[in-house]
Computed example of a mutant assay.
Amino acid sequence: MSSSPDYPEKDRPIEAWCDLHDLHVKLKDGRQVSTPLWWYPRLLSATPAQRNNVELMLDGIHWPDVDEDLSVDGMLQGRRAPGAVPPSVAAE
């Protein structure tokens, strides 16, 4: 696979997984990015099996079971899904 001229090869995801609270992505250059699951309501409401069925793309991650796509760039810039609410606010 060749790298896109618009996307740095160092930012390519090589592994992705979720625990109960966070999404973790390991990048080709060794960095690991973690973001809270509540940033992505589709992933938050998915089952653990659905969350762990991931497809790595050149510039992001795809979850076919929940039709969710996230870019590494979005994670690095701290972008969350529109309407995502912190659990403490959602409980009010």
Rank of each mutant, 00 (worst) to 15 (best):
P41V: 03
E55I: 10
P86L: 08
G78A: 08
S71F: 03
D65M: 07
R79N: 06
L76Q: 10
R42M: 02
L44E: 08
R51K: 06
A46E: 06
Y7C: 10
V33A: 03
P13G: 03
S88E: 15
Q50E: 15
E68A: 09
P41F: 00
L27G: 02
D6N: 15
T47H: 09
M75L: 15
Y7M: 05
E55W: 05
M75V: 10
L56R: 03
P64T: 08
E92L: 12
S3D: 14
R80S: 09
Q77D: 11
R12S: 04
D67H: 04
C18F: 04
I61Q: 02
Q32N: 14
L56M: 12
L37I: 01
L23V: 05
Q50K: 08
S88V: 13
D19R: 06
K28S: 10
S3L: 09
P87E: 12
A46P: 07
G78F: 08
P82W: 07
Y7W: 11
G83E: 06
G78R: 09
H62M: 04
P48A: 07
V54P: 01
L23R: 05
P13F: 01
D59M: 06
L76S: 05
Q32F: 08
V89I: 15
E68V: 04
E55D: 11
D19Y: 01
V89M: 14
Y40N: 04
G83N: 09
N52A: 06
L20H: 13
V85C: 13
I61F: 00
N53I: 07
G83W: 10
P36Q: 10
V66Q: 03
A90P: 11
D19T: 04
L70Q: 07
G30M: 03
G30Y: 05
D19C: 02
A91R: 15
M1C: 03
G60P: 02
R79Y: 12
H24K: 12
Y7R: 03
H21V: 09
S71I: 08
A49K: 14
R42K: 14
Q77M: 12
L56V: 04
C18D: 04
E68P: 06
G83K: 08
Q50L: 05
R51G: 01
L70G: 00
A46W: 04
E15L: 15
A81R: 06
G30P: 02
V66D: 02
Q50C: 09
T35Y: 01
S45P: 03
S4W: 11
S4L: 13
L70T: 03
L23I: 12
A81D: 08
Q32M: 14
W63S: 02
